[in-house]
């Protein structure tokens, strides 16, 4: 019964969406806002990666909200998992083999470096703060799997998350004070295609990268703690 009703419901939705989609042909250029960003993006923001200029400049407010959502998920998950966490007997963790241990310790800084490269160059190449942050978090996952007794310091990740969010808001407020608009790109735009260009975009992406990295690592840390 439940299945039949569900399928009927889905059929109705599918019919409706088809009617609407008929007006949105696939693969043809049609958008005016997107066209404006491609034409004016480099000139107005200094970033050669137009997606970055949309994410961190034109629609930076969305990104602030997005960073907040991830922050909420990290602390919400912490709140759900820490209240009522039962004290478990200390279980002995079997140490990793020497090859695994050494390999993890060797790869850890390299992965961090690669993540940092991705978010520092967000305004020039594909990538950015979120992507770089995810790579940084993967380095921590590797140490959890390989060097099992290692943990990230809770105090450190808390500091990184809070400071990251705070710097984002403060950069926005400085823009408001200097130029009259919240999150305005008040720094010099520089020459496109150079690392030191695009004003506040690299600053915000570095902040986002650090913050996202520590939040994702914190989420994984909390989940691993629970499963032990």
């Amino acid at each position: 019964m439940r299945r039949i009703i569900s399928i009927l419901l889905l059929g109705i939705i599918a019919l409706g969406i088809t009617l609407s989609l008929a007006k949105i042909p696939f693969g043809t250029p049609k958008t005016k806002v997107g066209r404006y960003y491609i034409d004016k993006g480099v000139e107005e923001t200094g970033a050669t990666n137009i997606v970055t200029s949309v994410v961190v400049n034109y629609r930076a407010f969305d990104t602030l909200g997005e960073v907040t959502v991830l922050f909420i998920a990290a602390i919400g998950l912490g709140a759900v998992l820490t209240t009522g966490r039962r004290k478990k007997p200390e279980r002995k963790i079997e140490p990793a083999s020497l090859v695994l241990y050494t390999g993890c310790r060797f790869l850890f800084p390299l992965i961090l470096l690669f993540g940092a490269y991705i978010f520092v160059h967000g305004h020039l190449t594909p990538g950015g703060g979120f992507q770089g942050g995810a790579i940084v978090a993967s380095a921590f996952v590797l140490t959890y799997l390989g060097c099992r007794e290692r943990r990230i310091s809770e105090r450190g990740s808390k500091l990184a998350e809070s400071l990251g969010g705070l710097i984002f808001v403060i950069v926005g407020l400085v823009g408001l004070a200097v130029g009259g608009y919240f999150l305005m790109n008040f720094l010099p735009k520089g020459i496109p295609n150079f690392l030191f260009s695009a004003g506040i975009i690299p600053i915000l992406y570095i902040v986002i990268g650090v913050k996202v990295g520590s939040e994702l690592a914190g989420i994984i840390d909390n989940l691993i703690e629970e499963s032990e």
Binding site: D62, G65, V69, I72, A79, T83, G84
Partner: peptide
Amino acid sequence: IFNLFVFFEILCISSYALVAYLGN
């Protein structure tokens, strides 16, 4: 409208976590 969606998610996700706050 998309920004409305983002803020709506902030509202919703924090309320999911707060409903579960007591952990019972």
